[in-house]
């Protein structure tokens, strides 16, 4: 809509897909979740099972824009726009979500991390339609968190975001960990090197600090130094450890109103 205002309509037809019931469905079967591409941020955030299973997705949805944007904007739109700062992307990537793409030849499935090629570029082909995302909820007992840093408390574009999932086994060792960052990389991806560092370890401040340094190293490796790097390396080196601490320790679950 914003682009159309600046350029005028550059197409001869526009199809409204928002009324297709299948695209608006949220289906939860056990720990398997299927989220239609046209589910709005407001509906995703208000869905009781989704909130219970993946609170960080609700957090991300409620961090976008204000009520008007949340009432109209969709998870599918957020992903397909493929902005580096899109708030649902690190969450979906941390969940290893699969994107379902319908085309004339049938459906294909692609990890969200592979759907995004570069900022504002996706692997969607002419004639293809993003229909849904599917993912498994984090293991029972796992915690998840979405942290966003913006310049103000609403209607703010992420300067940096972190999505993390973690679980500690009975022996006190990390047996499940996922970490993804937003607004820091040209395309969203799990920081698997950081995850590997943490997996199987006993949660401790020293470990988190190492993980933070590793996260920064991964970011620098991918992006090199940009104008904003000086800020992001400092912020990420502290937010990544914080996110890991929050999901790996017995702390109360964070909320949208919790200062990150």
């Amino acid at each position: 809509m914003v682009a159309m205002r600046q350029r005028g309509p550059w197409f001869d037809r526009l199809v409204d897909i928002s009324a297709i019931p299948e695209l608006r469905e949220i289906v939860v079967r056990g720990d398997q979740i299927r989220l239609g591409a046209c589910v709005t941020f407001a509906r995703a955030a208000a869905h009781p099972q989704l909130r219970a299973l993946t609170p960080m997705l609700a957090e991300a949805c409620l961090s976008i824009g204000g009520p008007q944007i949340q009432n109209v904007g969709t998870v599918g739109g957020n992903v397909a726009n493929a902005a580096a700062c899109a708030d649902t992307l690190p969450v979906l990537v941390a969940l290893d979500a699969q994107a379902h793409i319908a085309g004339a030849a049938g459906e294909r499935v692609l990890p969200v991390s592979e759907l995004i090629i570069a900022p504002h570029h996706t692997a969607l082909q002419q004639g293809e339609l993003l229909t849904a995302f599917s993912f498994a909820a984090p293991p029972a007992g796992a915690r998840s968190i979405f942290i966003k840093v913006g310049r103000r408390n609403a209607q703010a574009i992420s300067r940096l975001s972190v999505a993390a999932i973690g679980h500690v086994d009975a022996a006190g060792l990390v047996d499940h960990v996922r970490l993804a960052v937003g607004a820091a990389l040209p395309r969203p991806q799990r920081l698997t090197a950081v995850e590997a560092l943490v997996h199987g370890q006993r949660p401790a401040p020293g470990l988190y600090a190492l993980a933070g340094a590793q996260a920064v190293a991964v970011m620098l490796d991918i992006t090199g130094r940009r104008w904003s790097t000086e800020y992001k390396e400092v912020a990420l080196s502290q937010l990544a450890p914080y996110a890991l601490a929050r999901v790996l320790e017995d702390a109360p679950l964070p909320t949208r109103f919790d200062t990150p």
Binding site: V149, N153, R159, L160, Y231, A235, Q238, L239, Y242, T259, P260
Partner: peptide, 11 residues
């Protein structure tokens, strides 16, 4: 104010 020393965010 509260200042988040990790991000510089001031409320």
């Amino acid at each position: 104010v509260t200042v988040d020393m990790r991000t510089g965010k001031t409320d």
